[in-house]
């Protein structure tokens, strides 16, 4: 029983961070039709920024929102100066499909190099602000600790804010309209290019939160060559694809499915199989249901 509970808790904590990553990818995809491979690098950069802010302010609770704001600003900057120029200059022919992918990969390389240049290639340590010792019930120690509980709660709160923003506000309506049908949005008076930048900014904030929470909930060690962050990108992407790549609730559902399946494999089968299962899940899904579970059958219109 406690093993099952542990599986569930491991799954949910992992899922909460995957869902932030998946939301970042979905928002970027919806606003510019680009899969941002630099997302992991941007999350890693945010983890470093979080580390710097914590060591300067000494307060994690100030550093987290500040790093999210900076993450949003950096992401908006990338959209405004890199992607916009790129889409303008290479909007035709075979290069149009490839250029954004190569550009985000290039950006990933640049970020990694800059991180190594500034902070060196060794580990820096971002200390967790809360205890990571699991709660005990009777004589069993549960997997979940105050830190993990905060991560889950914080992500749920963020999802709530994002839902309200998208479903209940004018900005949200403009964001959705521009994602589904940019031309109609434009003809309705929405300043679509500004809305694109905003989509990237929200993605940047979610990615920054993912990077910092992943670090403090894990070992706390940050390294420019971190494999953990590359995995975060892959898992976030798989979660987004499960959800259909277009849908925000889908991204969260995908993260939950992925988190629970991987936790099941880790606890009941073997931790070494996690990666293989994740990829098999992705392949099976792409073959059986390429539009995802909440993907829309209604295509995007010009």
């Amino acid at each position: 029983m406690s093993q099952f509970l542990d599986m569930f808790l491991i799954g949910i904590s992992a899922a909460s961070i995957y869902s932030l990553m998946a939301i970042s990818m979905v928002l970027v995809w919806r606003s510019t039709r680009v899969v941002n491979f630099a997302q992991a690098g941007m999350a890693l950069l945010s983890a470093y920024i979080g580390y710097e802010l914590v060591s300067r302010t000494g307060n994690f609770w100030i550093a987290l929102p500040l790093a999210m704001i900076l993450g949003a600003a950096f992401s908006a900057f990338i959209e405004f100066f890199l992607m916009r120029t790129l889409l303008k200059n290479s909007s035709q022919g075979p290069i149009a499909a490839i250029a954004p992918i190569i550009a985000t990969l290039g950006l990933l390389g640049v970020i990694h190099a800059v991180l190594g240049f500034i902070w060196g290639h060794g580990d820096v340590q971002l200390e967790a602000p809360l205890s990571k010792v699991g709660y005990t019930v009777g004589d069993t120690t549960l997997f979940i600790a105050p830190m993990g509980l905060f991560v889950i709660g914080f992500v749920i709160a963020l999802l709530f804010v994002v839902t309200i923003l998208f479903q209940k506000t004018n900005i949200g309506l403009a964001l959705r309209a521009s994602a589904y049908a940019p031309e109609i949005a434009q003809l309705s008076g929405v300043r679509v290019s500004g809305i694109r930048t905003l989509g990237w900014a929200i993605a940047g904030a979610a990615g920054a939160a993912a990077g910092i929470l992943q670090t403090v909930n894990g070992t706390g060690a940050i390294n420019p060559d971190s494999l953990e962050f590359s995995l975060l990108l892959v898992f976030g992407f798989i979660a987004a694809v499960i959800g259909g790549l277009e849908s925000l609730p889908g991204a969260v559902l995908g993260a939950l499915i992925l988190g629970l399946v991987l936790a099941f494999v880790q606890i009941y089968i073997s931790g070494t199989l996690v990666f293989i299962v994740a990829f098999l899940l992705l392949l099976a899904l792409l073959i059986l249901r390429p539009q995802g579970f909440l993907g829309s059958k209604v295509g995007r219109r010009a």
């Binding site: 959705r176 109609i184 309705s188 008076g189 929405v190 829309s296």
Partner: peptide
Amino acid sequence: SHVSEGKSVIPQLTVEENLDLGALW
């Protein structure tokens, strides 16, 4: 205002959201 060719509405939005979109600015 321009209504482009071919039923220029956004199918994923509700009727009311489509209308609100027109007056968003």
